[in-house]
Design a protein around this nucleic acid. Structure first.
Lengths: 201, 201
DNA sequence: GACTTTGTGGACCACCTGGTCAACTAACGG
DNA sequence: CCGTTAGTTGACCAGGTGGTCCACAAAGTC
């Protein structure tokens, strides 16, 4: 019943997300959102409630996508050995950050640093996404250990969070304009956290 | 000649820095700065130019302090073996982030994620600080290699940036409320990047 | 104690902020 | 084709925005 919505929710959320991504929460005004979406203020508020709800929804959708992407890249279906999948995924992320122009890193990092400090809903979205991505890394590491490719004494769960940290770290570094080879060096050296099963120190 | 300034520049910069740290660049208004410093708007603008200059100055001062602190913690004077100095420094940072209430992480991370994307002066401050901290780590690693404590095939420069990345990473994680033991696990596993000189894989 | 110079405080400016509202428009059921 | 429901639009609101300006206050010079 009633009039049909004249726009697609998902499309608008993507446009909105890009605005928040590029200019931050406080730096994005309702007029910026109107301009970017082509919608009237009333339509936006009717569909999403208020600015904060809209932000949270865009961020949530984005972080779900991130988790899905991490799972896909780290699962056996992605091909390659577990250790190679980890390295390929991290390398792809480092390259994608470097290729951005203008630089914008990852929206989840932006949202976390922007708001999570004193915005519990945002913090929860971030914590959740970080935990699930860390788990995906941990599962890949465990697979590598089962296959005899990764040393069995590695703490898979801890290393999962290490890789999540490294991603957030190269994100921040890339935002400052640090060059791609440096970021790739970070990824390369981070791989030492999952050494082969040789007689390690 | 002329009236004396009625406040200390350094004191005011610290107060201002805390405001920007807690609320971000866009989230801090000139009125917030007036309230926090107790100064009139005219005095602030007279002393610092405009909001952006003021921010940049607070950030620059902060990042110089960070670099100094990193150098002190990683230099031989800090005591302990090179490898221990690295681990102690990273551990201290992880603990300090966890102890914050409210959470606020590191101001340099905040500034970088907030503005560096499209603010070259801020990006330069960040790039510079990251590079110098990475160098401090690298020097400690080289010292460890000379002392036979760290495997000689480790790429000290790359590992320096890895540790900088890890700090930025645990910063972001801690902002989302991830617990201290997890952050300490990240530090512990990151230490695998500078293994002892045994027969490594 | 005038004069110059620098610092201070707050009024003031033009404009932007997030959010609301009421008149209006489209789609469906009967 | 008429009521009901939901979506759209733009005017409107109260208060906040970064920045400027000017009358005034202190400090040093002669």
């Amino acid at each position: 019943m009633g009039r049909k919505r004249g726009f697609d929710l998902g499309d608008v959320l993507e446009v909105v997300r890009d605005q928040f991504w590029d200019h931050g929460y406080e730096g994005t005004s309702t007029y910026d959102l109107m301009d970017a979406t082509g919608l009237g203020k009333g339509s936006i508020y009717k569909a999403f409630g208020n600015k904060h709800d809209l932000y949270l929804r865009a961020l949530t959708e984005y972080s779900e996508g991130l988790v899905t992407q991490a799972r896909a890249a780290l699962s056996p279906e992605a091909g390659g050995s577990p250790r190679a999948r980890v390295e390929n995924y991290l390398t792809a992320i480092a390259r994608s950050f470097s290729a951005q122009s203008p630089r914008r890193g990852c929206f989840l990092t932006k949202g976390t640093v922007d708001l999570a400090d004193n915005d519990e809903p945002v913090a929860e979205v971030a914590r959740n996404a970080f935990a699930r991505i860390a788990t995906s890394f941990a599962e890949a590491v465990e697979a590598g250990q089962s296959a005899g490719e990764i040393a069995p004494d590695v703490d898979a769960a801890a290393v999962g969070y290490l890789f999540v940290s490294v991603i957030r770290g190269i994100d921040t570094l890339s935002r400052s304009g640090i060059a791609e080879p440096v970021l790739l060096g970070v990824v390369r050296t981070a791989m030492a956290a999952i050494p082969g099963p040789g007689i390690a120190a």
